[in-house]
């Protein structure tokens, strides 16, 4: 479980996160939703420690992550898999080299064991025969799947996704959503997804936190969200005609 307790974060004069408290459960897909500029990416990056928080606590499995020094944080980070918005694959490495990279850095496995693990992870994200391709030579959807394979290669306890469906067509987005959901159950991870894709919300939202104006405005699941009377949440979720027709 990950607990976020009363965290605040400012950049200069501007306060981006205001006293946010949330809990993310293991084996479930925990969604952070909100408009662009609402602070959800800052929240995600603050949770994983890319941004230092100004106030509050972030607790990973009972350990106060936010007050650890760099060395202690690095240990926890080896238990975290993160998929960035653009995939963040290393351009000069092939697919195989990207996926094996965390194993080479941290695992102590033999070459044979590492190869086996890479094959397993690429197979798990339904990618075959792409080992020797560079990221620029494969599609956006495939890049996302390679990034997921790299994120799960060290058997992480915690998985974070920043806009996993951005730039993908709806069909590929559903494939990625389903994959994330399956991996969350298979690996029993605490999965936190940052999204504004309403399909993802409907398909995968076990727990949902709506961030509005830097605050945790509403929490619930993908069934509660359709019945909520929260004005700001409804304006966000039912912004399109299609979504309004679903509500009716």
């Amino acid at each position: 479980m990950i607990e976020v307790r009363n965290i605040s974060k400012s950049f200069g004069e501007e306060q981006i996160l205001k006293n946010i408290s949330l809990t993310f459960e293991r084996g479930k897909t925990n969604l952070i939703i909100g408009q662009s500029g609402s602070g959800k990416t800052v929240l995600l990056k603050s949770i994983v420690g890319i941004h230092e928080i100004d106030e509050g606590e972030i607790i990973f499995g009972g350990q106060v992550y936010s007050s650890m020094d760099r060395k202690e944080k690095q240990k926890i980070r080896q238990e975290i898999g993160m998929v960035f918005q653009g995939g963040a694959l290393f351009d000069s490495y092939t697919v195989y080299e990207n996926v094996i990279f965390p194993l080479r850095m941290f695992s102590g496995m033999s070459k044979k064991e590492m190869n086996k693990r890479v094959d397993f992870c690429l197979d798990r994200v339904n990618l075959q025969n792409v080992n020797d391709f560079y990221p620029s030579e494969i599609s956006g959807g495939m890049q996302k799947r390679v990034a997921i394979a790299r994120a799960i290669v060290l058997n992480p306890k915690y998985l974070f996704f920043d806009e996993p469906n951005s730039g993908l067509d709806p069909k590929t987005a559903i494939v990625i959503d389903n994959l994330i959901k399956e991996i969350t159950v298979d690996f029993n991870t605490v999965t936190v997804i940052n999204t504004h894709d309403m399909n993802s919300v409907a398909e995968t939202g076990d727990n949902i936190a709506f961030i509005y104006n830097g605050q945790a405005w509403w929490t619930g699941n993908n069934k509660d969200i359709l019945e909520s009377e929260n004005k700001e949440l409804n304006e966000f979720v039912f912004a399109t005609k299609l979504m309004r027709s679903i509500k009716k």
Binding site: R77, M105, F106
Partner: peptide
């Protein structure tokens, strides 16, 4: 280029 494409953040996130 690594910085703007979040590859450096990815390294940091892995504990590198």
């Amino acid at each position: 280029t690594m910085k703007i494409r979040e590859q450096i953040e990815a390294l940091d996130m892995m504990g590198v």
